[in-house]
Amino acid sequence: MARPIWTGTLSFGLLNIPIRLMSAERRTDLHFRMLDQRSNTPIRYERVNADTGDEVPWKDIVKAFEYQKGNYVVLEEGDIKSAASDSHETVEIDTFVDADQILPAYYEKPYVLVPAKKAEKGYVLLRETLKKTGKAGIARVVIRTREYLAAVIPQEAALMLIILRYQAEMVDVNEYALPEKGVAEYRIAPKELQMAQDLIQSMSGKWQPADYRDEFRDKLRKVIEKRLKSKGVTAAVDDTDERTPENATTNVVDFMALLRKSLDTRQRTPAAKKAVVKKAVTKKTAAKKVAKVAAKKKPAKKTAARRKAG
């Protein structure tokens, strides 16, 4: 069984759901090694100094940012860690949006959120609520050494965490020369449009992802197997059993109370802020009054202090 990337919590409001973050993709690429054709010996890549050509050991390698051509600023590991979020191993949803508002181009990489033992109630509560409302939870999550923007969406019995691209990573389509005018400007007749619609309708069907395979990979694998058989070679597949650690918790949680408290907290927040501001203004006004009284009582000292400061 696959190992979790990390074990932590999924939280929204005051609800915390213990989960395991699992990969939702399986790489099926065929990996090739580069060989020296004279001896079929693998070619090794080395880290070498660009000036001397000498190999550089890992212990002497540091990370740096090139701010100008040929000019670098070296960063320590602490510098990089300090930029990371403190919310490691937490998927904290801070807002909910209509799921259909997220354009497909923003979706990057899928993960599965698996509930820990005895955490099913909160998991199902969030999953079913997202299904009924058509919402997606927008969160930030740290995976390994980088913070990502992510969407939490329901898919059948699962809660999926989809890594999203930031807007700054997207190319604005208006940067390209695109045909933006109406269909009449491109001499497309209404009959042609109707025929195209009829063709699409005749080719339409249900989305069945299992019907599609990487045919190039399948054919290439057959070529490799044929080569192996011609040499009398058999390959063994290492099927290692990987155990998934469990994150024990309790399922006896008063979800109604937590939900009410979360809602009440959000409703009372503006009033609380106003009270703080009012209190701060009152203190500031009182301080000004005290300062005026003190100034009236000791004018000589205040004048002397101003001369000294000047």
Score class of each variant (00 low, 15 high):
A2K: 12
G8I: 06
F12Y: 03
P18G: 03
I19A: 06
R27D: 14
F32C: 01
L35A: 13
D36Y: 11
T41E: 10
P42Y: 11
Y45G: 01
E46P: 06
R47A: 09
V48F: 10
V48W: 09
A50Q: 08
E55C: 08
D60R: 03
V62N: 03
A64F: 14
Y67A: 00
Y72I: 01
Y72C: 03
K81S: 10
S82R: 06
D86H: 03
T90C: 02
I102C: 06
I102E: 09
K118A: 08
E120F: 13
V124R: 09
V124L: 08
E128K: 10
K131A: 02
V142T: 13
E147H: 05
A150D: 12
Q155S: 10
A157V: 09
L159C: 06
L161P: 04
I163H: 04
Q167A: 07
Q167E: 11
D172V: 12
E180P: 02
K181W: 01
G182R: 13
P190N: 07
K191W: 08
E192C: 07
Q194S: 06
K206G: 03
P209R: 12
R213Q: 14
F216G: 00
L220F: 15
V223G: 02
I224V: 15
R227E: 06
S230F: 10
A235K: 08
D241K: 13
P245F: 05
A248L: 07
A248Q: 08
A257M: 02
R260E: 04
R260Y: 13
T269A: 12
V277K: 15
T282Q: 04
V290N: 06
A291W: 14
A291V: 13
V293I: 14
K296D: 09
K296F: 15
K297T: 08
K302M: 10
A304C: 00
A305P: 01
K308E: 13
A309R: 15
G310F: 14
